[in-house]
Amino acid sequence: MALLEVSKLEAFYGQTQVLRGLDFSLEEGGITAILGANGAGKTTTLRALCGMVRTRGEVSFSGARISSGATESIVRHGIAHVPEGRGTFVRLTTEENLRLGAYTRKDPQAVGEDLERVFQYFPRLKERRHQQAGTLSGGEQQMLAVGRALMMRPRLMLLDEPSFGLAPNLTEELFDILGAINKERRVSMLVVEQNASLALAIADHAYLLETGRIVISGTAKEIEQDETVRKAYLGY
């Protein structure tokens, strides 16, 4: 059984329909990429999964129907969303931000261990531990967002443009870490990326969105070879 099962997912901002019936699924332990141009509905897909926009359709997560729940109930199933714009609590310290990630957990001991693990992944965050998160650089805040998501011990991470605003070397580093997290901790991931080649490099499956519909789907390899994708999104 797939970890995440989505059928006929539609999403609306007010009266405007943004997603026009998505069907897709996600295997446990896999990394899936959602590609597409600006305005295709990539971010909205992630927001719809978390109940942050008005939706219709069915979403189930490891067998449980989550599509009608409130955001805070959905994420409690073990879905961590690293949102567009990072969602940093700017006036809290780095450590407080991370601890908030573990807000729903009831195992303080393990939370402490996970905090140390995040600091291992991102040593910069340890240096900035007691600093106001708003004073962190963009890259550091991105790390913080990923770290906060990890603190939840999620089964699925939704990553919205993790490369946004990062220098190329930092982006690479971040994707390496994401790959490592996926392998070591068996966290499934759904990644939205503008940078298609980067996303396809770590993903095993991918979907291409156009104006709220899935137009191409397949394994990352297949997608990479697809003529239209190559021309439009990979640029060669």
Binding site: F89, L100, Y103, T104
Partner: peptide, 24 residues
């Protein structure tokens, strides 16, 4: 306290607070 921290988080940024499971 965790609740105190959650209250501060909810006040600052309700959307992000929901994403970490806080009942805003």
């Amino acid at each position: 306290t965790p609740i105190g921290l959650a209250m501060r988080a909810a006040a600052q940024d309700p959307a992000s607070a929901r994403l970490v499971g806080i009942r805003v």
